[in-house]
C-alpha cells in the first residue's frame, strides 16, 4: 500500500481523478447563473482541463524525461491552445 502511494503514476492518476470530480461538480449547465460567474466557471474548468492534459503529457507520456525541444513544444501547445480558447470565449479574438 505504501509502495502504491509512492508510485508517481498512481499519484498522477489519483490527482487526475480528484480534479475531474471537482471540475465536474462546478461545471455544466447551471440555469440562472450570471454572466460573470459563468465566465469564472469556464476559466476554472478549462484551466483544470489543461492542467490535467499537462499531467498526462509529462507523466504518462514521459515527456518529463524527453529532450528540451519536445518539452518546450508540448508546453507551447498547452499554453497556446488554452490561451486561444480563453481569448475566444472572452471575445478577445475576433
Amino acid at each position: 500500500m505504501l509502495r502504491l502511494l509512492r508510485d508517481p503514476l498512481f499519484l498522477a492518476w489519483s490527482l487526475l481523478v480528484a480534479v475531474t470530480l471537482v471540475s465536474s461538480r462546478i461545471g455544466g449547465p447551471n440555469p440562472g447563473i450570471d454572466v460573470g460567474s459563468a465566465a469564472a466557471v469556464t476559466t476554472i474548468v478549462l484551466s483544470i482541463a489543461f492542467a490535467k492534459v499537462a499531467v498526462v503529457i509529462f507523466t504518462f507520456m514521459e515527456v518529463r524525461g524527453a529532450p528540451v525541444v519536445l518539452r518546450v513544444l508540448c508546453s507551447v501547445w498547452l499554453f497556446g491552445v488554452l490561451g486561444a480558447l480563453l481569448a475566444l470565449y472572452y471575445g478577445i479574438l475576433p
Binding site: 471540475s23 461545471g27 447551471n30 460567474s37 459563468a38 465566465a39 469556464t42 474548468v45 478549462l46 482541463a49
Partner: peptide, 9 residues
C-alpha cells in the same frame, strides 16, 4: 472535449 462540450458555462 469533456470540458468544452459538457462543462463550459
Amino acid at each position: 472535449i469533456f470540458a468544452l462540450l459538457y462543462l463550459v458555462e
